[in-house]
Write a protein that binds this DNA or RNA. Structure first.
Lengths: 239, 239
DNA sequence: TAAAAATAATGATTAAACCATTAATTTTTT
DNA sequence: AAAAAATTAATGGTTTAATCATTATTTTTA
């Protein structure tokens, strides 16, 4: 008898919550469906209003339900979108303390992977868009600190464009919150200026043409180097 | 005036929830601190018990609070741990439908990155442990379907060991939920058997020695191939 | 026909109990 | 004096029964 679980002292709210959640996950209720009204749920589940409402509040917070007030209102099963998931993960990540180096290690791998897939899959139109991004990046030169901030913003737009190009939900759900949090971080700690802007653009001037020429190795190499420079900058930032 | 927000018709529960949440995020309450008792919160916030409890339930679900019953009990501010985050992301991923191919693309990149770092950083003791895992994997041969299931379990233990070796929170938070969900998936869809077990082990018999010899490229190559085989298996599974 | 008013369904909130759990304290027993 | 048992008090958990607020639908009125 290897694993015995302690008979969980599960509360009524937890019981009710998981009953409803499982009903949803098992497909008894589908996105768009309405749960029974709170008064009905009391009867069905044999729990009081307070208990039912606590459960519904939890499931709403989890993103499984949305609520509409008034006649014909109620608790409706929500279509789980990557958008909601990204939001949740972003919130979670805001509480996590990660060193710049750790994050770099991860991003270097994943973003290299991202840009490799982009290099394989970008359509001619996509590549044209990427060249446009390069122009917008170059326009940040000669504008000092605001230029640097604008650069980071455009870089992140470009990365999101890449996520769309490769059309992979997992990459999207993992990278978007990281990108957004970094954007947020950059707004508060305004490191970097003219010189850093020029350096970054020099990398993009290697990356975009390499994508155009479908040269995966070069793309991956410079994507990693760009992130490395960025990490070094963060490590040495003043404050 | 670029962005105007609609005056939100914010509910009392939302109001109370965000008041408490902000107090926590602003550091008025620190991890380990106890919130005032529910009865006190009613007075402080001028809301009824039901309202206060709904808010606390939401914040508990968010992972900001943990509750202890009885005398000296109460709602305590939680230290955000990767464990809680992993759990939340795992739950989120359960709701997401991802194709085997999409997941493979992502895992191939990230796990190759993981094993590259392992190859760079594993201590002699770590490598000894990895050889032990290889022995345990080999012991799954000749046991049919149960052997295959056991194999997957040990593989995932091995991956978690690798996460410990590289000591990187981001890798940990991203990969653990994926590994756990797959474990779960494998429990329901029992594809694979003797033949697949042998094939998988053949890969590990290349990977582990390559780690020992600090041969990053070989490691990355076979890690990817192993995942590719696994993906193909999932794509063609009977049910 | 169009506007206004009433209706009914449903979520939101309150109030006042009482139950259950648990750490600390007090009493009893050995 | 030490150990065991009973008591107490603080706190979360749950119930019940109202009442308020919002909104789609229906009915009435001008």
């Amino acid at each position: 008898m290897p694993k015995l679980k302690k008979a969980k002292n599960i509360s009524l709210v937890e019981n009710v919550t998981s009953q409803i959640e499982n009903a949803i996950l098992d497909g008894e209720y589908k996105p768009g469906d309405k749960l029974p009204s709170t008064r009905e749920l009391q009867d069905i589940l044999g729990a009081s209003l307070g208990t039912v409402r606590e459960s519904l509040a939890i499931l709403e917070q989890k993103g499984l339900l949305e609520v509409r007030k008034g006649a014909r209102g109620g608790f409706f099963i929500r279509k789980v979108s990557t958008k909601h998931m990204i939001n949740s993960i972003e919130m979670l990540m805001r509480h996590m303390v990660i060193s710049h180096r750790e994050l770099y290690e991860f991003r270097a791998t994943v973003e290299a992977g991202l840009f490799r897939l982009v290099t394989q899959r970008a359509s001619d139109d996509d590549i044209k868009d990427l060249w446009d991004y390069l122009e917008r990046l170059k326009a940040c030169i000669g504008k000092g600190k605001p230029g640097w901030f604008k650069l980071i913003q455009i870089e992140n737009e470009l990365r999101k464009k890449c996520l769309i190009i490769i059309d992979n939900r997992t990459y999207e759900v993992v990278l978007t919150p990281i990108i957004n949090n970094l954007q947020n971080y950059a707004q508060y700690h305004r490191f970097g200026g003219e010189q850093e802007t020029r350096e970054a653009i020099a990398f993009w001037e290697k990356i975009i043409p390499a994508i155009d020429q479908r040269d995966e190795e070069t793309v991956a190499k410079f994507v990693k180097e760009l992130l490395y420079r960025f990490m070094k900058l963060l490590e040495n930032k003043p404050e």
